[in-house]
């Protein structure tokens, strides 16, 4: 957490004024994800392919987003029940334009990492677990067709369980950008 705060402070210091109007556009994103690192968790559970869905809009400074990602984990032995994870997050990021068409996005997400265990013996109370999680994200975005863009993304997710779980996630996805309807912009403001 201390590292994340340091990075955040350094990022804040290097901030420049936002050029885009706040809430002027909505960027719907979907991406296929795969957890690629090996930590203690992976000795007992095998991660499956996941899916991430988010909506992003320009903010007073940088962009903000809200979204959800889902990754299933299969137990390697029957004593380790399969579980589905859902990361419900809000995020903030900055853009850096490279050349004319490629942009690098980097930022932070924070939210709740919910784990639903497929454990018949556990009570309703015990079979669902949720934990604060924070992730650092990086994304390379390039245009595909009109308002549609492609992206390659990475995410370093820290789940604040008693023994921290760190997941390195890579993904590929598409996004569709549209102008925010007036009524919605009024709501945001």
């Amino acid at each position: 957490m201390k590292k994340i705060i340091t990075i955040l402070l350094l990022t804040l210091i290097s901030l420049k004024a936002q050029e885009t109007l706040p809430f002027s556009s909505l960027n719907f994103k979907i991406s296929l994800q795969q957890n690629k690192n090996e930590v203690l968790l992976h000795q007992f559970w095998e991660p499956q392919s996941g899916l991430n869905f988010s909506v992003e809009t320009p903010f007073y400074l940088g962009n903000i987003e809200a979204g959800i990602s889902k990754i299933d984990f299969e137990g390697k032995l029957y004593i380790y029940p399969d579980f589905s994870s859902y990361f419900l997050f809000a995020g903030w990021s900055l853009n850096k334009q490279f050349f004319e068409f490629v942009s690098l996005k980097y930022g932070i997400r924070s939210g709740v990492f919910v784990m639903n265990f497929n454990d018949q013996a556990a009570s309703e109370y015990e079979s669902t677990e949720s934990e604060l999680s924070v992730s650092l994200i990086g994304e390379l975005e390039f245009p595909v067709y009109k308002n549609i863009s492609g992206n390659l993304n990475t995410e370093l997710l820290t789940i604040f369980t008693d023994k921290r779980i760190k997941l390195f996630i890579v993904g590929v996805g598409l996004s569709y950008k549209l102008e925010t309807p007036k009524w919605l912009r009024k709501f945001f403001e």
């Binding site: 007992f44 709740v112 784990m115 677990e129 008693d162």
Partner: peptide, 21 residues
């Protein structure tokens, strides 16, 4: 709200791990 420090999936590895949230 949520407080950190739950065992998460490790509750199935270490039975003594207790939920704190």
């Amino acid at each position: 709200g949520n407080e950190i420090g739950d065992p998460g999936p490790y509750t199935y590895i270490n039975e003594n791990a207790k939920n704190v949230d």
